Simulated scan of single mutants.
Amino acid sequence: MLATRLGNGGNLLPDYEWVAFYSNSSYSVAGNATIHATVSIKIKTSPDNLSFKLGYCVANSTDGLSGSGRYGSFFSSCFQVNGTGDLIDFCNPQLANIDPRTSLDNDIITLTFDGGVTPTPLDNAASVYLCVSGLTDTGDSLSVCEQTNRTKMRSLGLNKWQIDLWPRKLFNLPDNKHLTGLRYFFTDAAGGSRVGYGGGSLPFTYTFKCQ
């Protein structure tokens, strides 16, 4: 309900949540009186490398979320947490995104390429394909870079493309090997036009982890 009523404050990835706090103290305030209060809230961040927009809302103790019961909701500019792993950027439009944000190599993941964010060499492509390398816990690098049905992405319209993957099956991994991460690009049907991180030549990255 909080996300529906208050929104996301400009955070562009869907993996966020509101946390509700209820004060044990109450204060009587006369009608139409102006008061000033200082509230301190301490929360723990995850150990991830994050860039996101913090937000808070002040509401009353009944419904509290309706227009008349909410005193205000406010959001910050981008806040950086210098954690570990790949940068998870909630603030800036993303050419590529993997859902869920955290998974293991035996989970089904969904990769999305949003070519509408910024111009890329794939703007006029009739079809888009995934070119991906898997890094294993034994130091091997496995690659699937082909323009076939198993790497073809489905069109969502407006230059947006998506594909569902089962990483272990894609790379035909034996039981004694595991993937630690992915490095990937998007290509056209000929394989000649390739889009990586920020629209450049470096690959997008994804690290498998359980959280």
Rank of each mutant, 00 (worst) to 15 (best):
T102A: 08
I35A: 13
S155M: 06
S25A: 13
A190P: 01
S26F: 08
G192V: 13
T45W: 09
S155R: 03
L54T: 05
A189E: 11
S143P: 01
G199C: 10
T45L: 15
P121I: 09
C78F: 01
T187Q: 10
D15P: 01
G198R: 02
N60K: 05
T62L: 12
D99S: 14
E17I: 06
T120E: 00
N82H: 05
G191N: 08
L165M: 09
A126V: 13
T148A: 12
N92S: 15
G31L: 12
I88L: 15
R168P: 03
P174H: 06
S201C: 06
K53D: 04
K53I: 04
V29C: 12
D114Y: 03
K177P: 00
V117D: 00
V19Y: 11
N176P: 02
K44N: 14
A59I: 05
K177E: 07
D105S: 10
R168T: 08
G199I: 07
N97W: 00
Y22V: 15
P121H: 07
L179E: 01
T180F: 03
G9L: 07
V81D: 00
D89E: 11
L2P: 02
F208G: 01
S201L: 12
D99M: 05
T110S: 12
D48K: 14
L122I: 04
K42G: 15
Y184R: 06
K42L: 15
D188H: 06
K42R: 15
D175E: 10
D99N: 11
D164I: 02
S40V: 04
I163C: 03
L95K: 01
S141Q: 14
Y16K: 06
A20S: 14
D89M: 10
G55D: 04
T207Y: 01
A126D: 15
F204G: 00
T180Y: 02
N8P: 03
V29K: 14
P14N: 15
F185N: 02
G83T: 07
N92F: 04
V132N: 01
D123S: 08
Q162K: 14
N60E: 10
F52C: 03
C78S: 09
T187W: 00
I88W: 01
G55S: 06
T34K: 11
E17R: 12
G198W: 00
N106L: 08
R154F: 04
N49A: 08
I98F: 00
Y71C: 03
K177Q: 12
A33T: 14
F113S: 00
V58D: 06
P174S: 09
N159H: 11
S26Y: 06
I35E: 14
C145D: 10
Y27N: 11
I98A: 02
N149D: 14
K44L: 14
F208Y: 10
P119M: 03
L165A: 02
Q80V: 10
T34A: 13
G7D: 04
G139L: 09
L182P: 00
S51T: 10
T136H: 05
T110W: 01
G72N: 11
T120F: 01
A189W: 05
F52D: 00
P167D: 05
I109R: 02
A190M: 09
G69P: 03
F208V: 03
W166Q: 09
